[in-house]
Each structure stands twice: as C-alpha cells, then as structure tokens.
Amino acid sequence: MTVDDAMRERRDRFEGGALFIGPEGLEGLSVSSRMSSPRPHHHRTLVATMTFGEMFATRIRARHLHAERSPDRLDDPYSGYAQLGFVLSGRMRIEQAGRQNAIAPGAVSLLAGSLPFRTRIDEEAESIQLYVPLRLMRAHGYAPESWAGLTWDVTPSAVALHEILRTVTSGTNPVPATSATHVGHALRELALAVLHEAADRVHAEYDARAMYRERARAVIADRFADPSFDVAALAEELRVSPRYLHALFHGEDLTAGAQLRATRIRHAATLLAGVRTRDLTVAEIARLSGFGGDDQFARAFRRAHGITPSQYRAQHRSAAY
C-alpha cells in the first residue's frame, strides 16, 4: 500500500523541500488547512515532505504561522490520516476536540485529519509530523477520534520513532527510493508501538469523559425543571468549561444542550398525556418542565413532535377513551 495519487498530487510542491515567505507564502501553504499569520510580512516557513510506503513525514520550521483545518476541508485526502507529531525546537499550540495543549520538545501529539483542528506557532518552532493512515489505527483497535488533540510524554518507542524521523527528514542523508518501503515498514511498527504505550492514558481520559457525561445526564435529570438552568449552568455545576462540556458530547447522539431540551420535552409530553395531570394547563406544564415561556415551549414541542402541545394532549385524551 502506498500514498494514494490524490494525496501525492497535493504534496508534490513540498517534496524535497520548499520555502514560503510572507503573505504569498501563506497562500502556497494552504493545502489541507487555511494558513494565516499574526505578522504576515514576517512569516517564514520551510517545509519538506518524504514518502515512505503508506505513510509520509513532513518536517516544518515555521515562524508566526497559524493553521486551521475547518469542517469544509474534511473531504480531502488528508482526512484519512492522523498526524503523530514531535516538536524539535520552540513551542506550538494545538486545539482539537475540545482539547488545548502546548507542545514542546519531549512530548508527542496526535491530530486526526477527520476532525477540525487549529495549530499555532507564535514565535519560531521546528516540528516533524508522521502521517499515519486512520484505517491502520482502526485496524489495531485505536479510535482516532478518542486520540484527537492529545499530547503525552515521550515513551521508549516514541524516542526511537523521533530519532528515525529526525534522521530521515534531515536532508543530509536522503533515503534511497529502493529503501523507502523498508523505512516505511519500520515507521509503521514504531508508530503502532507508540500508540500501544500511550493507550493507557487515552483509555483513562476516555473513562473520565464517560464519567463526566454520566454526571452531566444526572445533573440534567435533577435540574431540568429550573427555567434558569442552561448549558452554562451545567458546565459550572460540573466545574468544566463550556468548551470542554461541548467536547464531552462530541460523537454522541445528542449534545448537552440537546439532551437538556429533550429531557424537558419528554417530561412535558408525560404531563400532557397523563390522566392525573389533566387539570394542569399547558402554561403550567411548560413551567413545570423548565420552559421560560409558553411560546418557547410551543416552538420546542412542535419541533420535537410536529404538533402543538394542545394537539398532543387532545390526541392522547381521545386515545384514552
């Protein structure tokens, strides 16, 4: 298996090394992500890419460079890869799936090309990214979305991978084409070893996120009837940021806000259809279900059920007789 033609075509401009300077250079760099700079006229990026069988490595030395991979770019070939990254010098920041981390030498990071992300280099930094196929991760039981935006301290396998990548991307000893596949095999095995060694941390964080989701659902069930209770109040109750709360439910069927609305609608529907609650007015049911007003309740209920609360009540009353 080798890097596909669509990916190769997009990367040809970086093969062997290319220098990008100033605002025009930012446009030339904008392949998989939109590039910008807080100081565009001082921006400078040297980038080189090397292909090794099914994977490829990119070495970047950049100054004043911000990158954003937005949702509208997620249908390109890069969406099939994860970036396993090492910083050689300087510092950079990454943000993905609600995680924000600063990376320096001695750490490993992972960005999934299938999800939006941001990276920032405000001064100057040099880094290496190994592009690992997502299907390879999945085939070995690693869900890329669970790893997105994570950083961790280097492990023994990460040290070995770092040294090989540093050597083969240095430009002083180019890897012969006849050896590229063998190097790719070594990189593949080391990348899987890095993931294996870091898996305990990922599983621990995944378990923590699952725990927070359960706590969020419990708090919603307890406080949904309070009209002033919203997503910001839920985040405060859990002692997490609204951004992290949003990330907790990424990939779930419902966001935190949608779960709160669904709980209120479900409670209201129970009251509307109940025999013992038939004396309650629609306005009273709206208030008891956590809605701030009749109009808000009517709109939310119609979106969920396709009919008004009064029509829903009438249908269930006629069915009862």
Rank of each mutant, 00 (worst) to 15 (best):
A186K: 09
L187C: 07
L187F: 07
R188Q: 14
R188L: 11
L192M: 08
L192I: 06
L195M: 15
E197A: 13
A198L: 00
D200L: 05
R201Q: 12
V202L: 02
R213E: 12
R213P: 11
R215V: 03
A216E: 04
I220A: 11
I220P: 04
D222G: 03
D226E: 15
V231A: 05
A235Y: 06
E236L: 10
E237Q: 12
V240E: 09
V240A: 10
R243D: 10
A247L: 02
A247K: 04
L248H: 11
L248K: 06
H250P: 02
H250F: 07
G251T: 03
G251F: 05
A256D: 09
G257H: 08
L260V: 02
A262T: 09
I265N: 07
A268M: 10
A268Q: 02
T270E: 09
T270P: 01
V282P: 01
E284V: 06
I285K: 07
L288H: 15
L288M: 03
S289E: 01
G290R: 04
D295F: 08
Q296S: 07
F297M: 10
F297A: 04
R299H: 04
A300E: 13
F301A: 05
F301Q: 04
R302D: 05
R303F: 01
R303I: 04
S310Q: 04
Q311L: 13
Q311H: 13
H316N: 11
H316A: 00
